[in-house]
Nucleic acid binder design. Structure first.
Lengths: 169, 169
DNA sequence: TGAAGATGCTTTAAGTTAAAAGCATTTTCC
DNA sequence: GGAAAATGCTTTTAACTTAAAGCATCTTCA
C-alpha cells in the first residue's frame, strides 16, 4: 500500500466514472468468447461429419421446423439475426439439397414463402435429436442449479447488450 | 398428475440416462448464442465505424501487442483458435495496411516472424482503449459479484467444452 | 389515378473461415 | 550422407457474412 486512497467502487458506479480497471470485464468477455469458439466449433464439426450439414443451414431448418405454415425470408433473417442477403443464399442451397421448398406468396409477389419439404423435416428431426444430446453433454456438466444461475446471468447480459445495440452510438 | 412416477434426476445423472428432457440445456445454449451475436455484432460495427477495422484483424493485433518479440504464424493461429490459412490472409491485409511487419525467421526459413509496426502499435492501443470501454459498458451492468459468478460458471462450461472437443467423437 | 415512398428480396464487392492439397524446409534415423 | 517423416506456411475451393446498391412490387396520399 502506498497511502493513496481510491474512491470506493460498487455496482452503481458508472463505467465512465472509472475509466481504468476494466480488465475484469475484458477477461469475462474473453472467457465468454472462448466458450463460444469451443462449443460452436465442436457442433460444426459434428454436424459436418455426421450429417454433412453446416450450422447456419441447421439453424435455418430449426426455424422452419417451428413454423409449419412456412416463413417469409424476412422473418427468417430477423429470427436468425442475420442479413437478408445471407438468407437468400442459405435458402438457395437448401432448395438445391431438396430440404426446403420456396414459392411466391399468394398475396404479395415480392415475398416468398419457405417451407420444409417432407425430406427436410425428416432430415432435420434426426439432426436435431443428435444436436440436443451434444448440447446436453456440454451443459449437463453443470448442476441444474448452476444452469438456472447461468441462464439468469445471461438474461442480464443479453438485456444489456440489446440496449447497447439499440443505442447505435 | 397421472400417477406415473419418474426416477429422481439430480446433478449426477448422466446425460445418456435421461435421453429426453434436454430442453433446459438447449435453451441455455440458445441464450448464450444470442448474447454472443448481439455483443460481437455490436463490437464489429463500432470497430468498423470508428476505426475502419475488422474484429479478426483486431484480435490478431491484440495477440501481437502482448508479444513484443513478435510471433510466428503458427503461434498466432493457435492463440486465435483459427486455421493456418486464415492467419496467412489476415496478416497479408495487415501488412498491406502497414500495421504489421513480416520477415523470415533467422533460424528456420519456413517460418515467418510477425511484429507490430510502430504505427500498428499506436493504432492498436487507441482501438484497444475504446474496445475496453465498450465491453465494460456491457458487462459493467452486472455487479462485480455477478461477474465473478459468471466467470466461474463459464470456467466450468469451458472445461466441459474442451473435454468434448478433445474427445473427437 | 399516378407519382413518391416503402417494402421484400437479390446482387455485388469485400472479408472471414475451414479443410484439404501442396510446397519448401528441417529433422530423424538408418 | 541421404531417404523418409515432420513441420511451417500457402494455395485452393467452397461456404458464410455483411453493407450497400439495385430491382420489382406494393402502399400511400395528393
Amino acid at each position: 500500500m502506498n497511502g493513496v486512497s481510491f474512491p470506493p467502487l460498487d455496482a452503481e458506479t458508472k463505467v465512465s466514472e472509472r475509466p481504468h480497471d476494466h480488465k475484469d470485464e475484458l477477461r469475462l468477455w474473453l472467457r465468454f468468447l472462448s466458450c463460444n469458439v469451443l462449443i460452436e466449433g465442436n457442433i460444426r464439426r459434428r454436424l459436418r461429419d455426421k450429417f454433412d450439414m453446416t450450422l447456419p443451414r441447421f439453424d435455418l431448418l430449426a426455424q422452419l421446423d417451428k413454423a409449419s405454415a412456412g416463413m417469409k425470408l424476412g422473418e427468417l433473417s430477423q429470427r436468425l439475426m442475420v442479413s437478408n442477403g445471407n438468407v437468400t443464399g442459405l435458402v438457395e442451397r437448401l432448395v438445391a439439397q431438396g430440404l426446403v421448398d420456396r414459392q411466391v406468396a399468394a398475396n404479395d409477389r415480392r415475398s416468398h414463402l419457405v417451407k420444409l419439404t417432407a425430406e427436410g423435416r425428416r432430415t432435420f428431426r434426426a439432426m436435431a435429436a443428435a444436436h440436443e444430446i451434444w448440447i446436453a453433454e456440454i451443459f449437463g456438466e453443470l448442476t441444474s442449479g448452476e444452469r438456472a444461475n447461468l441462464m439468469q446471468l445471461l438474461a442480464k447480459v443479453k438485456k444489456s447488450a440489446a440496449k447497447m445495440t439499440a443505442a447505435k452510438d
